[in-house]
Amino acid sequence: MIFSVMASGTTCRLLQRRLSSTVAAATATRPSMAELRGRRSEVFGREQARQRALYPRIEKIEVQLHGPGLDGTTLIMNKGLSTPLSCAKHLTEFHVTDSAVAMVDGELWSLHRPLTRSCSLSLHSFRDADPALVNQAYWRSCASLLGQVMETSFKDDFLVELLSAPELPVTSGAFCHDVVLDPQLDSWLPTEESLRSLSRGAQQLIHQNLVWEPLEVAPPVALEVFSHSRFKQEEVEKMAAESPQGNVTLYRCGDHVLLSAGPLVARTGLCNQYEVTAVHSLGSGPGGLQRRVQGLSLPLQLQAHHTVWRKLRARAEKQVGVPVAPEASPPPPDAPTPISDPTPSATPSV
């Protein structure tokens, strides 16, 4: 009987060692988040260079400007190379720093997207009499920034799967991004300090004044970019099916590449007050435990008194009214204890 018990204990230890070795081997073979970002940025850069090479000979186009004090102004620009921001640089410093998006022949356009034909152009900022389209692009950009923060704030050996960033009106009170964290973090419970740490991560990206570079690509290119994300590949196929041209638009911010359903503002520096306000559990989904991360922000040109900001923040803490996944079942009695610090000291501590 004693031998049997000892043998059982030895077998258990051997099985534990084998399991640990298997997990360690799987972790060693899978690419880290830094490697994934590097690969995605590399594919983006390669396709960007290929598209620019399609215009080996400089051709001129006429850009008719519209807006206060600009009606009747015509600029001669370079086809496939010049952008709305290039046009703004021919005007004043105010147009360069204040503009958030452009309108090209009635279509909302990123400031960094090249112009490929003669067209009419107007520049738009948060000071417009009707800033609805600019505000929506800003809200979408803030949600994209939130996804970037979530992907870069944890230790590199924790995988973070970015799901969708639901299109929400500014009147919803918060923007959001859905994510699935590494299974090792399923028991992680965000604290106020965690939210402050994520907010500091966003502020770091804002202070870097990074450009949101747009690139319209065919689905195969986007599928290569997101070859390690089944969810993103499905999102690519869905967006391509809904696009009249059958293409999708990628954006690169630093080394972070993302999909977007619409234009983003020119740069992260246009954000000012920015806080990550809440992390809500959406329950179990196909990829694991899904969470909805929410935030609140105001652009550089608009600022709120701290008392008003506190009221806005309290509203932004409540889960926004968008479809959610079924609630997760209660954790078993032997569920692991919460992880308190999954992030490295070199990055914001969550």
Rank of each mutant, 00 (worst) to 15 (best):
D128M: 06
V221W: 02
Q136Y: 00
L75I: 07
P166Y: 06
P344T: 12
V179A: 10
E59N: 11
V180Y: 03
G38Y: 06
A137Y: 01
H305Q: 09
E62V: 14
Q48C: 04
G321N: 15
G45N: 14
V23D: 04
D178W: 02
L302C: 04
E275M: 09
G173F: 09
H305G: 01
E47H: 05
Q290Y: 04
D186R: 06
S187D: 05
G283S: 08
Q64S: 13
E192W: 00
P31T: 11
S345C: 09
G285R: 09
E242C: 08
G38E: 14
K60L: 12
S141N: 03
V320F: 11
P56Q: 07
H228N: 12
A24D: 15
R50Q: 13
S172H: 14
P56T: 07
L298A: 14
K232A: 15
A325E: 10
D341P: 00
P323G: 06
A328W: 01
L54T: 07
R30S: 13
Q16A: 15
D255W: 00
E47F: 00
L258E: 15
A335L: 01
L162F: 02
V265C: 09
Y138I: 02
H280M: 06
P323N: 08
E327C: 07
E235G: 00
V180T: 13
G106D: 06
L210R: 13
R113Y: 05
I2S: 07
R230F: 10
Y138V: 00
C87K: 02
V43R: 13
A222W: 06
R127Q: 15
E161D: 11
R310N: 08
P338D: 10
R140Y: 03
